[in-house]
Design a protein around this nucleic acid. Structure first.
Lengths: 148, 148
DNA sequence: ATCGTTGCAAAGCATTTGCATGCCT
DNA sequence: AGGCATGCAAATGCTTTGCAACGAT
């Protein structure tokens, strides 16, 4: 996360209390494998920096994503979630891990990046479509929500 | 599409001008492989039945989806799109086709249902997660939007 | 001192809902 | 006739934006 701050500075982006707090919140959430919505981030940021406005959280998330220190995942029918960007594995173009969401409990699960390799190859060959694996989540039902 | 109307009746659902018009619009769109948002459907319905209100279009889409005559696809960051349900191949689990969306031009492309079979198997085995292939679209860049 | 960032409030888009009326069955 | 479906308007949830004040470098 110190790396994230350094990355911001070297990109010519300013480091403000709001931005620092957002990074701090996302760092803590990442340790628990949580995926937070902008609203949730705003709430947690308020615990540390009560003066930070919701709109600022949104703008912060947008610019931090453009700088590449965090990523967002579009979920089907619910609010977008954010997490710190995965450390980039050298010369691999495809970004971080993939995600699936349970449409019963709403939980977001991480999926190893290589799970979608076959699909990505086939979409490229059949349709000329270059898949951005981590940018949106597929839906389904998680283990806990399948009635036991 | 006559089949869709019959299916509605046998499910005890009423067939109203609004519902008929929505089915008609989706049928025509399907022939052109179009995926329409609720708003687009509303506009086209208005050409035939000008008195139909937007809210009715939404309610109609919801109930027709519950009856199973149409499906919706959640897109990352843009409005949900609808299409007539695929004819069901007998006793298979809900296997409609899958979709991907280009985040440059917004176009939605159909993907053969079996493309995700490998992913679905691995998610089930590794995470106990049952994938609903057709319910959300992945994002990427289509052939036309890769700089020519 | 500069120019990016923020707070505020208000608008925006997609979608939903309460209520009284209307029409399919 | 009876009850679901509709029209209308207002509310919701998520996110963006115009503008003036503020503060990081």
């Amino acid at each position: 996360m110190a790396a994230a701050v350094a990355r911001l500075r070297s990109a010519g982006e300013r480091v403000t209390p709001a931005r620092y707090a957002v990074l701090h919140v996302l760092d803590a959430a990442g340790l628990a494998d949580e995926h937070l919505t902008a609203e949730q981030i705003g709430t947690r940021v308020a615990d540390v920096e009560p003066s930070v406005h919701r709109a600022t959280v949104y703008r912060t998330l947008t610019s931090l994503a453009e700088t590449g220190v965090l990523s967002h995942v579009h979920l089907g029918g619910s609010a977008t979630v954010y997490h710190l960007a995965d450390p980039e594995p050298e010369h691999h173009h495809e970004h971080g891990h993939a995600h699936v969401q349970c449409h019963v409990c709403g939980r977001v699960l991480d999926v190893a990046p290589d799970v979608f390799d076959g699909v990505a190859a086939r979409l490229r060959d059949d349709l000329g479509f270059v898949l951005d694996t981590g940018h949106a989540a597929l839906l389904g039902t998680c283990r806990d929500c399948r009635t036991p």
